[in-house]
Design a protein around this nucleic acid. Sequence first.
RNA 1: GCGACCGUCGCCAAGUGGUAAGGCAGAAGAUUGUGGCUCUUCUAUACGUGGGUUCGAUUCCCAUCGGUCGCCCCA
Length: 431
Amino acid sequence: MTAIQALRGTRDILPDEIIYWQHVEAVARRILNRAAYREIRTPIFEQTDLFERGIGEATDVVSKEMYTFKDRGERSLTLRPEGTAGVVRAFIEHHLHAQGSAQRLWYLGPMFRYERPQAGRQRQFHQIGVEVLGSADPRADAEVIAIATDLLQTLGLKTLRLEFNSIGDRDDRQHYRQALVDYLTPFKEDLDLDSQDRLTRNPLRILDSKDQRTQDILQSAPSMLNFLSPASQQRFEQVQQLLTDLGVSYRINPRLVRGLDYYTHTVFEIQSDDLGAQATVCAGGRYDGLVSELGGPETPAVGWASGIERLILLLQQQPLTGSALDIYLVSRGKQAEAQALRLAQTLRQLDFSVELDLSGSAFGKQFKRADRSGAVLCLILGDAEAETETVQLKWLKTGTQESVAQADLVATAHKLRQRITAEQAAEQPVS
RNA sequence: GCGACCGUCGCCAAGUGGUAAGGCAGAAGAUUGUGGCUCUUCUAUACGUGGGUUCGAUUCCCAUCGGUCGCCCCA
């Protein structure tokens, strides 16, 4: 019988790795909360229609990467491939626009895309994202980007690049698209095959083709930046100015386009050189047309999403110290073992982290495990201690040992706390 | 979806067409209530799975599943 294994492109996150997840989540919560963003949780599956309309039917994500299936009521459902569409749907459905000016929201959760897995890319992956709904102010664009860089910096990630561009409004893009097609059509035979296909389907995406010959041809192609209307141009400059004021460094990349149809004006990506082909760690932009496209009121919006697996891939290049166990409790003998269980529970209620050895094996073996557990203090309960209701405190760092009445230990818990904290600080200078 | 490489114990890893080294981790003991060192012993009827070739395959071939890298695309 062959054991069942996790499906392709999915994986288990085991206890040894979870510390990175908890760290990312804790840092994200802190940063988003202090910027007055509020968490929203939306369903993992939605009507297929939502994504087709929201993301764009011609995009790769929708046309070939969605997990779409029929439920028992013959409804077409899709596991969400990204977070924005669901958030916007909820925003409209619950009339959040009526709650005041801009809604600042964030989310965190699994997304699903049917793709060939490779490093930094899975079929079930996790994103953390923010959306500001209801503000057209360029400061919203700048704020959202600054929060992203703040998050990444606080996580300790270095050598990241912020690429930034404006793709204008719909009219700007329409004009530019035409100009680009006009320019490229004579060269059609010389473009790589994918780009030839994109010439009719999605010409803007030719801009970030990795084919050298295509890139050569693009050298003298018209630039998006020359097709921005005066208003779009002004807005682009304002956001740049604000980013500079905030001390956020960026690089303008006129070739930066995004794969989802809903973007307007500001688009950006934050990339790392340490991730191989999947370099983008955070990406987003403005999407002024999406809310109305999905049946809501005309609502300007801006946001981004970041791939948690990719963040963690980068974080793991620098080790993170684990949360230390306070106490390892060893015991031997019927009465002692029963007391030990109770003592462990009491100490936990006093907020110590306590691991109880359940093996019942020789003390020597139990000490060995105590040592490896990373605990700073070992409590020992044997027949002698059980008889007198005392407990031996053995400080694993120094080997010093003392006997204390169990009742006293509990009564003076704050002193114990102080001493444990001091020991832990001494052995772990880095946090 | 396309191309390439890879798949031997929980982890790392050697190896050969003739029947599976080693290291780490784990368990037991040296040490009947005191750890981090040391020593001893144990831990793969089996080399992702299924077929085929062969007297015989973990080693060759095919398929399949999975991983990695690149393309596509994206977080």
